[in-house]
Design a binder for these strands. Sequence first.
DNA 1: GTCTATAAACAGATAGAC
DNA 2: GTCTATCTGTTTATAGAC
Lengths: 221, 221
Amino acid sequence: MSTDRGEPARQRLTRAEAKARTRRLLLDAAARVFARKGFAGASVEEIAESAGFSIGALYSNFGGKEALFLELMAERGLGRVSEAAQTLDRHEAGTGEAAAELGRLLVHVADKDTDFAPLQAEFWLYAVRNPHVLDTMATALREPRQALEGLIDTWLAERGAPADVPADSVATVVAALFQGLVRLRRVDPDSVPEELFGQALQWLFSGIGAAPAPARPADQD
Amino acid sequence: MSTDRGEPARQRLTRAEAKARTRRLLLDAAARVFARKGFAGASVEEIAESAGFSIGALYSNFGGKEALFLELMAERGLGRVSEAAQTLDRHEAGTGEAAAELGRLLVHVADKDTDFAPLQAEFWLYAVRNPHVLDTMATALREPRQALEGLIDTWLAERGAPADVPADSVATVVAALFQGLVRLRRVDPDSVPEELFGQALQWLFSGIGAAPAPARPADQD
DNA sequence: GTCTATAAACAGATAGAC
DNA sequence: GTCTATCTGTTTATAGAC
């Protein structure tokens, strides 16, 4: 309290606030560097310097490289998936409009937020390689998918599909398709035009409405 | 030629054959280790030992760690995607049966061939981070997708969908969905039951057949 | 709380023996 | 053609100054 001196005191940060700010800056830098170099390929030195600090600051705020990565994973493990649900919630009516909006989201994630998909892939790889993290990720991923599920319930009712169709399955399909298209677009943009995701959703929902009870896929033998 | 001595000469390998065998063993070991540790996380020592050789043998057969990785990528970059198309080609008639077959393929890739998806993710990350490899991968991925496209053309005709629907878009959607579901199943198997992929395809194709010309997604303003 | 300097371990790659 | 030994650079993590 009495330690501040002739300093201009530009922002007046308590030590706790300063430390929190450092942590935030380090976390953001870590997201950048991990996305661009991968978990193993990134060095703590590059992360610290990218945040404008030195290695010492990093170790004073986090247990180490792995702890920093895990904290980042807990913070943005499920990324924009929950954002997506919220964005779509505003377009309750009009599946077509919502589909177009989803198309824009895909383009944004794939083209603009260039660090997002690689970081997500890095999280996935880490989880697959570290079984005890796998469960954490599984439950973390279920949350945003349930948000999607609520939305899909609405769409389904709107389309006149019977309660017969399990909304959680549809939500899983939509989420998987989104991820797959984002990844593909990063490698070959021409093969995934902006409208493709919306188009696919139209096909999907139209098909769900058309075939009410496809419980038995095909038993023709 | 005159170097072999009292050795039992079990298989009689020429030096060229022996070297080819070493390369193959190293390549296979590299696939295992890269899948489990990642490109940066894997050490050449572990790869060499996993193949039953020493570091020297690796460097005598490949330019180095990166060259080994790139060769592996060229060899199995597109993985079972082309296999999938061939498998399905046998079930020309009966979309339902083909869908069930695809479901089994997904389960196999996700559950049995545990190294496949992580290795594929590693390839993708490498391509995204090395632009000059990106183009190579884009063209490599187009090939199996065209095989899928031919198959889809058949299904579409069978379903009575007009030529209106672009088969390449459908192929892209199917491929992206497959990849997305495989990844999700590795993390949360319960959320991706064995039949889900086939089910989703049924919905999709049924929807394509139902809505003949959805060229303009939604213009209601 | 953050920085500088350093310790200790490990990586990729090479040289020469066999 | 493959192995052993080694060189060189880099890495994580820590200790002590400020």
